[in-house]
Design a protein around this nucleic acid. Structure first.
Length: 613
RNA sequence: GCGCCCGUAGCUCAGAGGACAGAGCGUUGGCCUCCGGAGCCAAAGGCCGCAGGUUCGAAUCCUGCCGGGCGCGCCA
């Protein structure tokens, strides 16, 4: 009996391989088994005859016919036929539905630790739609890898010693601002930042402002202003949590420096032939790394790690962090920071933290950072190679996504050309609320449904396309509730859940399935259901959620088509609750699986799956 | 200038070297005798940027060109 599609495909492959021997093929040949296109006979097929044609010097169609005649198909396969040069297999409807209805089993643990860093927003202003893409991608990839069996650490890097934070805190001081308690705190603080930048345009003030910023920077480095930064961070976290993103730990840049990780990283690099301290010329007195063997296309391959005044550059800190992530360096203590909405504890690095809390030291890393940072990310990988670990450089991935533009222009927080995540979510909620009121006026909890649909629309829009593609943020597109959208998939899920609810009310939910009664109408949904493990595996392997998003659209479409199917005379072809006993059980099993796969898939994307919407 | 990424239907996008290139939006026309119409069915719409090459087979791989985005600081 066929258990699931992985077995099925593997069994088909084996059967074909055995028949190859009968044809006199001795050399091992790769036998691809793929689903047949719609409107073609069969469910799965192989083009192996084309490969063979070359070796055996015979026409592919002829070989396909011979293969089809000799192959001994596994149990449950109802037919084998040659279609042109392809050999196609038809699985019986009963077997197909039975296999598709088999309960989901998550993949086994792979025993590999992966560290995903995402979000990493400067703690000095509210989140904008560019950050939205980062969070949606990073959170989805983390969930997918965890499901795929990896041990995943999700980190959010807090750049608390950066210029942007210094400018903001300086602005608050300079203008003597007091929090009004009304505006969300990160938005309020962001206004001070924008105001300072307006003032900085005046060349007469530049020196005075610069000195002020530098003074704050020093206080930040000493850790003196940590609680100020933390206050902004907590406001930002509310937005991240509202989106459904959660983290395992926050890593503060100041901790990285204070714990000496930066110095250790530099020490690792310093005695390699690639790193030098020139006595004269352009880089006199600085510590520089020659990246020419690792990064192409640079006029000047020398990268400054330590300035001639003794201060470290940003790339140096990045390198130290990366070394720690991959276990080249140890250190950093952690302690609990907050309880997240799901109950999961969020840790933070801290000078008084517990050093035995085991973050870092992963075998593979994924840095979710936009594509404009590709060069610094290559430098980070180069540093691993310089430190004698080219093997680690291979698995230090940069999940590079293209930036989000706004009306075709680059987002700029400073110039106010931006849309905040909070604003987007509020508007999404408002629009979804209106639709719920219209479509489902009896809804028991319309506010909660509107929130779930709004978030779902926004997050799905951010992950449905390939990360490398630039996207222009448009309200109608990001907040679309029909067509290829999050709510479309959510609706398909709610519809399946609704049928199961009614089945339970009618007392037929536990009815035994008689798969032998399965019809041709079930075939497309069943086949699509069987593709789920492949979709997740592909998303994990390629480290991109869009593969899974596209799959869920396919499944929702197949399920909706099934739901609406009619006989040629126009009468409903696929009633579930009114189907004859046995067939009803089989259809309920299929509907349950549709609901479970949609729910699981949506969860992996971080899109809520409401039962009623 | 050099390097990286992207060019697929009017628009927004899928498409791990395999079967006549697929969705959504928009346009046109249909579907409430069923369990949710945020849905379904159908039609129209394509030199897959251009030109070569590799291959039994190319939207997919290679080379060149064209168009667009980004990067190339002792900034972060």
């Amino acid at each position: 009996m066929v258990r699931d599609v992985r077995n099925l495909k593997a069994e088909l492959r084996r059967a074909v391989e055995q028949s190859l021997v009968l044809l006199g093929v001795e050399e091992p040949v790769d036998v691809p088994v793929q689903p047949t296109p719609p409107d073609r006979p069969g469910d799965y097929g192989t083009p192996v005859a084309f490969t063979l044609a070359r070796v055996l010097r015979r026409p592919p169609a002829e070989l396909a016919r011979e293969l089809a005649a000799r192959v001994c198909p596994p149990a449950g396969v109802a037919g084998v036929e040659a279609v042109g040069g392809y050999v196609n297999f038809t699985v019986g409807a009963a077997e197909l539905v039975r296999a598709a209805a088999e309960p989901l089993r998550p993949p086994a643990p792979v025993g590999r630790r992966v560290l995903v860093e995402h979000t990493s927003v400067n703690p000095n202003k509210e989140l904008h739609v560019g950050h939205l893409r980062n969070i949606a991608l990073g959170d989805a990839v983390s969930r997918i890898l965890r499901y795929a069996g990896y041990e995943v650490q999700v980190l959010n890097y807090i750049d608390d010693t950066g210029r942007q934070v210094a400018e903001t805190l300086f602005a608050l001081e300079r203008y003597g601002l007091r929090y009004d308690g009304v505006t969300k705190y990160d938005h309020w603080v962001g206004q001070a930042y924008v105001r300072l930048h307006r003032e900085m345009e005046d060349p007469r003030l530049r020196e005075e402002l610069e000195a002020g910023v530098r003074a704050v920077l020093h206080r930040l480095e000493s850790g003196e202003l940590r609680s100020e930064v933390e206050r902004v961070l907590r406001a930002q976290l509310d937005t991240m949590w509202r989106l459904g993103a959660e983290y395992d730990a926050l890593v503060w840049e100041s901790d990285l420096v204070r714990e000496g990780l930066l110095q250790q990283a530099l020490a690792l690099l310093e005695h390699t032939p690639y790193v030098q301290r020139p006595r004269e010329g352009k880089y006199a007195g600085a510590l520089v790394m020659d990246t020419s063997s690792f990064v192409q296309g640079l006029e000047d391959p020398y990268l400054v790690l330590v300035r001639s005044d003794g201060t470290a550059t940003y790339p140096a800190k990045d390198i130290a962090f990366q070394f720690w992530k991959m276990g080249l360096l140890q250190g950093l203590g952690f302690r609990p920071f907050a309880q997240q909405p799901s109950g999961r504890l969020l840790y933070t690095s801290h000078p008084e933290g517990d050093r035995s809390v085991g973050f870092g030291g992963c075998e593979e890393t994924i840095n979710v950072i936009d594509a404009t940072q590709s060069y610094p990310q290559r430098v980070v990988r180069a540093a691993l190679a310089v430190a004698g670990r080219p093997d680690l450089a291979e698995v230090a991935h940069h999940l590079a996504y293209e930036t989000v533009t706004l009306e075709g222009r680059r987002i700029s927080g400073r110039r106010g050309h931006t849309v905040s995540v909070d604003e987007v979510l509020d508007e999404a909620h408002r629009r979804a609320r209106a639709v719920v009121a219209e479509k489902n006026p009896e809804h028991p909890d319309p506010e909660s449904a509107a929130e779930q649909v709004g978030i779902g629309a926004v997050r799905f829009a951010m992950v449905r396309t390939e990360p490398r593609r630039q996207i222009d943020f448009r309200w109608e597109q990001a907040l679309s509730f029909d067509g290829d959208s999050g709510p479309y998939v959510q609706y398909a899920h709610a519809r399946a859940a609704s049928i199961l609810r009614r089945a339970e009310e009618a007392g037929v939910l536990a009815e035994e399935a008689d798969f032998a009664q399965a019809t041709e109408y079930e075939r497309p949904v069943a086949r699509t259901l069987l593709d789920f493990p492949d979709a997740v595996a592909a998303a994990a392997a390629q480290r991109t959620p869009h593969v899974l998003a596209q799959y869920l659209l396919d499944l929702a479409a197949a399920w909706n088509a099934y739901y609406n199917a009619r006989h040629p005379d126009g009468s409903p072809a696929t009633p579930v609750l009114q189907a004859p006993p046995g067939l009803r059980g089989a259809r309920l099993a299929l509907v349950r699986q549709v609901r479970d796969v949609l729910r699981t898939g949506l969860e992996l994307l971080g899109v809520p799956a409401p039962e009623v919407m």
